[in-house]
């Protein structure tokens, strides 16, 4: 995986999006496009793996909120995994954790969709 990259893994009823690099407006827009494409293709159970995402700024968080809202409109679900302690704290403060699950690894994030 490149320093700045997005990987998609589709598996039956769910899909995993893995990002690497700095989640800002540029990577965030790519992530949103991929997520909307997956949702458009019928995937409403998503996992976003942030293990290789070194930093997430407030614009990146805003884009994650847009994905949560898009899934909410389809009665879907989103779980995050691979967050650092600081990222998890920020997500909880920004209320993302109320509408999306946070799990330590991809396996548990998928299992809890």
């Amino acid at each position: 995986m490149n320093k700045f990259d997005i990987q998609i893994r589709e598996d039956g009823e769910h899909a995993v999006i893995e990002t690497a690099g700095y989640l800002n407006d540029a990577l965030g827009e790519q992530l949103a496009d991929k997520a909307k494409e997956l949702i458009g293709n019928g995937y409403t159970q998503l996992v976003i793996n942030l293990e290789k995402t070194t930093l997430i700024n407030s614009i990146g968080i805003s884009i994650l909120i847009e994905i949560i809202e898009a899934l909410h409109e389809r009665e879907g679900a989103l779980n995050f995994c691979g967050l650092s302690a600081t990222q998890e704290r920020t997500f909880r403060m920004m209320a993302l954790a109320k509408y999306a699950g946070i799990f330590p690894d991809e396996e548990s994030a998928i299992a809890n969709l």
């Binding site: 407030s58 968080i61 805003s62 909120i65 809202e69 409109e73 704290r89 920004m94 209320a95 109320k98």
Partner: peptide, 20 residues
């Protein structure tokens, strides 16, 4: 407010700075 009243789109930078 959007779908969720406490999920805001923009302008949370200072909130993050103050929390950290």
């Amino acid at each position: 407010p959007s779908v969720h009243t406490d999920l805001r789109k923009r302008g949370r930078g200072l909130q993050i700075i103050r929390s950290l």
